[in-house]
């Protein structure tokens, strides 16, 4: 079978650059978030129970598993139980999981405060489930869809960004546990490998704004 994408292979191997023959692209995904090795700023977001949560609240944390997730995305739902397992496994070891819903409730009522509370209670989340409804935090991380995981170390340095593992649909067929492996590496002061993975999920729903005035449309 003749390979379908020989050009892309060359491209990936770095044999050709962004020249005339490289595929053009109309990208709307300008990722300006943290790069690996960059320190994440702390945040203060409202939890589903009405309290506020910041990373600095966790005095003994050796790191964090920050997950941008949502209520109805099939990928997010597929990972709910695995997020709970990750928290149960690592919170006591100094790596609590913090879930954040980045979707704008104006764009998607299924991600409003009430829905977040319903989800957290239904699944008995043992971790905070915060709302980034004003959408100030996820752009800093460069999250583009749900679920998207960031593993931070004790100094809030981003050490891993990407997906949880290599099989969203069928947990029993998972072979590569990226987040788990990343946390294990941090525990022994090593660099996660890989430090980034590609994610498939649901695009984060933005606050609808008027294209001319920039004001929020409701």
């Amino acid at each position: 079978m003749k390979g379908l994408f020989p050009l892309v292979t060359l491209f990936a191997a770095g044999l050709i650059g962004f020249g005339a023959i490289s595929p053009a692209s109309h990208s709307s995904e300008k990722n300006t978030g943290y790069i690996i090795g960059e320190q994440a700023a702390d945040f203060r977001l409202k939890n589903y129970d009405g309290t506020y949560v910041s990373l600095s609240d966790y005095k003994d944390a050796r790191g964090f598993i920050v997950v941008f997730t949502s209520n109805h995305c099939p990928y997010a739902e597929a990972y709910e139980d695995r997020l709970i397992s990750l928290h149960r496994k690592f919170a006591d070891k100094g790596f609590p999981l913090i879930a954040i819903n980045p979707n704008a409730p104006e764009a998607n009522p299924g991600d409003n405060a009430q829905a977040n509370m319903a989800k957290a209670k239904e699944k008995k989340f043992p971790f905070p489930y915060l709302s980034d409804s004003l959408q100030h935090v996820f752009p800093r991380f460069g999250a583009s869809r749900t679920p998207h995981v960031f593993v931070l170390d004790a100094d809030r340095i981003v050490r891993y960004s990407g997906t949880v593992d290599d099989n969203a649909e069928i947990p029993s067929r998972v072979k590569k546990r990226y987040v788990e492996d990343a946390v294990h590496k941090l525990m022994v002061a090593e660099d996660p490998m890989p430090s980034t993975t590609k994610t498939v999920g649901c695009k984060i729903r933005l606050v609808p704004r008027d294209s001319i005035t920039g004001k929020v449309k409701i």
């Binding site: 003749k2 390979g3 379908l4 994408f5 020989p6 050009l7 892309v8 491209f11 990936a12 595929p23 053009a24 692209s25 109309h26 990208s27 709307s28 995904e29 990722n31 583009s144 869809r145 590609k198 994610t199 498939v200 999920g201 695009k203």
Partner: peptide, 26 residues
């Protein structure tokens, strides 16, 4: 599919003779 695609949907590409001619990432 494309080395620098991040997996975001929708994603469209046009090919001729198996070569990608253009991509649209929105």
């Amino acid at each position: 599919v494309v080395a620098d695609w991040d997996g975001g949907l929708p994603f469209t590409m046009v090919l001729q003779k198996g070569n990608i001619k253009d991509t649209h990432r929105a």
